[in-house]
Simulated assay, not measured.
Amino acid sequence: MNDQPGNVVTQAFAWLAALAAGLGITTQDVVYMIFGLTGVAISIASYINGRLDARRRQKEDEKRTQLLEDYLAALPDKNAAKSPAVVNTVSEVVKRAGGL
């Protein structure tokens, strides 16, 4: 006979079949479980990433709101002649930002 050593893929499937036989289930079921666990891992990672993104967006909105409040609170101290134009500009910017 001509014995040849198996490659990595052959060995991986041999170990997979041995694991399935040891558990008393079919190799097909083990493959389904592996892909199912992969799907669960991707779903969990997506959920965590979405929550982190929402938290980052909320902090950015809070910073923007605080900057706008500070600016509008200091507005009466500024030149009275420029005040109406500045208020109009700020109100337009707020309207555009709200439309995003």
Rank of each mutant, 00 (worst) to 15 (best):
V94I: 14
Q11E: 01
I42M: 06
K63A: 14
R57T: 02
A80S: 11
G50T: 04
L16P: 00
G24H: 07
M1F: 11
M33K: 12
K63M: 08
E69F: 00
G24Q: 09
I44R: 03
S43T: 09
R96M: 13
L67D: 10
P5C: 06
V90N: 02
Y71G: 00
K82Y: 05
K63Q: 14
L16M: 13
T10P: 00
A74L: 00
T10L: 08
S43D: 03
S83K: 15
T38Y: 05
Y71L: 02
Q66M: 14
R96Y: 10
Q4P: 04
L67H: 14
A74F: 01
V8D: 11
T89L: 11
G39L: 07
T27Q: 12
P84Q: 12
A41F: 04
S83E: 12
G36T: 01
E60S: 09
Q11S: 04
D3N: 04
D77P: 01
L75D: 00
Q58T: 07
P5V: 12
R51S: 02
L100V: 12
A74T: 00
G22W: 00
V87E: 12
G39P: 08
K63E: 12
S43V: 09
V40L: 08
S91W: 07
L23Y: 02
N79G: 06
R55T: 04
L68T: 10
G36M: 05
A18D: 07
G6W: 05
G22F: 02
D77F: 12
A21E: 11
D53M: 06
